[in-house]
Design a protein around this nucleic acid. Sequence first.
DNA 1: AGTTTCGGCGCC
DNA 2: AAAGGGCGCCGAAACT
Length: 570
Amino acid sequence: MADTAERWALAPAEDGGVEIAPLGPDGLPAGPVRREGDLGAAVRDRPEVTRWVWRSTAEVYPRLLATGVRVERCYDIEDAETLLLGHEGRLGEPRSAAAALGRLRGGPVPPDPPQRAAEPGAQSPLFEPQSVRLPLADLLEVYADQQRRHDATAHPDRMRLLTAAESAGMLVAAEMNAAGLPWRADVHRELLHELLGERYAGGGEPRRLAELADEVSAAFGRRVRPDLPADVVKAFAQAGIKVRSTRRWEIESLDHAAVKPLVEYKKLYRIWVAHGWSWLQDWVRDGRFRPEFLAGGTVTGRWVTNGGGGLQIPKVIRRAVVADPGWRLVVADADQMEPRVLAAISRDPGLMEVAGRESDLYQSVSERAFSGDREQAKLAVLGAVYGQTSGDGLKNLAALRRRFPKAVAYVDEAARAGEEGRLVRTWLGRTCPPAVRTGDDSVEEAGIPLSEDEGSGPASAEAQEWVPGYASSNSRARGRFARNFVVQGSAADWTLLLLAALRRTCAGMAAELVFFQHDEVIVHCPEAEAETVVAAIREAAELAGRLTFGETPVRFPFSTAVVECYADAK
DNA sequence: AGTTTCGGCGCC
DNA sequence: AAAGGGCGCCGAAACT
């Protein structure tokens, strides 16, 4: 990702015009700011520019895409500001360009505007950013300062790679939002009818759900609403069975006639409310589902979608994701991404060796530490990454630690740092915010389980307010979070580079990236391009591995499937 | 009546 | 047998 070629900056103006300026290799202005009338034309007329510096990709790029203009690379100042503030341990501070300028000049620092929630069927993809615009000259001042702040980080080269990679991710996200995921509403409707039966007028439950609710009621001997947990718990209690909740894993093994229809009801109910007819109505237009991808939407760097539950498409619903006639979906899935990333960041010799092969990593681990029991090996590895604290996981963790000491020590150290409130970073330098307590008892709280202060009333809940992104006020929870953060976040670092590389290959083809979900990417392309895309994914994965982690024996294989329908992939 | 939280479950 | 990370979404319940 050498930033060799020409760099310009731009800032859209209120009246639809645009300010632009050339930048030198040092990131400082290399010429005067000039004004032009048309944003799209300003970019289109400068094909020699390989990186555009702007305040916000979400502000600029959808508009460029709407006029058919793409850019090679960009640098998103407000995204970089967020990453830099995080690295500096100042994540609580406003991250708009205007705020950055205020800090720089010792002037006022405006708070960040609140974000608006997604609305179904919104005309333009991505929410319109609400931060204040800045004149280009001011923006350039912030940009120059950010260049200096990159140099002050622990690993300037990695930090520069991180901001560049996430900016690339934002381009990918905007392009995915513009493209949309091919979606056959007719197939979806057929599927719903098959699973749920007819809809009744009035918007009530469809036939199959009503039947299952009747079966549940019959089994209990009275009217029970299976969609009301309190009602179900009460009904079980009356039948002499005590349950703490109606979670599936808790009721599945109960010996009662209501269990079977109840579990089936919950499964179908979920489809109905989350991916039923009204979802279809709200989120699918003109044969495309547009989940509004947002790169870097989470603390760990994973993406989120801003509507329609884009990252939670149930397996059964994937039947509706169908390529256009003559086109294919290349569905690619990183194999055992998290342990491979752990191998790369911890440099554990044993784990690097097994991760240096493309074959099933869990199988290899099991042969070394678990007498060939792959399931146990997988649980142990995931337990180490997620911070499992009880059950078989602990025993398995000990076995893992004996064989892969550096790997386990790496996540243990992250957990300890998290518990102690120290900063924890991904490989490229994305920073996990330390817990900040609004109260004053942060020190003695360390290591004490939550359950002790949990019951002490609303006042303590008030005092336990954390930086957004924290799952719990428990210091152990912070440890688990930090433990997971270094792996999940470093994996996110790598996937950004992967997407950037893949995007560059696809730029010369009809192929387009249409979906991305943590470790899985879908490219929609003409049938004739499919094999090229498959190869491009392999190459992009290896390139991303080298760029992210440097020289490493770790391989990053993908399982790919060329299909017409998403449901047929694996 | 409108807004926030909770319970449950989908995905990784 | 039981509980560990990240998310989003929906309706109902619990509030203001």
